Simulated assay, not measured.
Amino acid sequence: MDKVCKSAAEALEGVLFDGMTIMAGGFGLCGIPENLIAALKESGVQNLTVISNNAGIDGFGLGTLLETRQIRKMVSSYVGENKLFAQQYLSGELELEFNPQGTLAERIRAGGAGIPAFFTKTGVGTQVANGKEIRVFNGEAYVMELALQADLSIVKACRGDAEGNLIFRKTSRNFNPMMATAGKVTIAEVEELVPNGQIDPDHVHTPGIFVQKILQGHEYEKRIEQRTVRART
């Protein structure tokens, strides 16, 4: 199977449909699949449920899909720094399933591992636990959280080979590896696409068995979400 695609648009061919669920890697603007998000916008696919730590910022990342009203629901753990997100949510235009960050990560990992649900103390006694099963273990209350899976996972890696083996760089690793395991189809964009055999197996973060398509991205902006510096003297 030839996994290498010439472009993000080619990689998405035959995969998209209205109403689908998409996992998108990244943490803030770090490690986001910029090329695939742009191609999603251009495709015009609608009524999306997007599972991602956040929804980018106004005018960049997943925020561009909010501008075109392509996202119906977000499953997230952080929704700050995006005015359009707030406007759409408060007006009832956008649905939101809010998760503690560690819970979101574990729900995705569980989905990739074939674990249907798990119990955690996080959220017990708060609105997070509303409507969910509570069970007591060793005298402590735990809330049951369901695993997450997606029709499509889009991830970004530093380096990959033609088989789809991926290496992530530092903080940009974030949600990407677990999301790669939890999609029915996973598409990876990489900064450097190398021939098979050039990646040491001991260095692989995501094995190629989880990746169905791969492409070399281009023109990455790699924006800094917030730059904080001392005032000049």
Rank of each mutant, 00 (worst) to 15 (best):
F60A: 12
G61N: 06
G63W: 08
T64W: 08
E67Y: 00
T68D: 07
R69I: 04
Q70C: 00
V75K: 06
G80W: 03
G80Y: 06
G80N: 14
K83D: 14
F85D: 08
Q87I: 14
G92Q: 05
L96C: 11
F98H: 11
P100F: 15
P100T: 12
Q101W: 04
E106V: 08
R107I: 02
A110G: 02
A110L: 03
G114I: 01
F118G: 02
T120S: 12
T120V: 10
N130M: 13
G131W: 15
G131Y: 15
I134A: 14
E140H: 10
A141S: 13
A141K: 13
Y142Q: 15
M144V: 14
L146P: 11
A147F: 13
A147L: 11
L148Q: 10
Q149V: 14
A150T: 03
I154K: 04
K156I: 10
K156C: 08
C158M: 06
G164W: 10
I167R: 03
I167M: 04
R169A: 12
N174W: 08
F175T: 07
M178R: 11
M178W: 14
M179K: 07
A180E: 03
K184T: 09
K184A: 14
T186Y: 02
I187D: 00
I187R: 06
V190Y: 05
E192W: 02
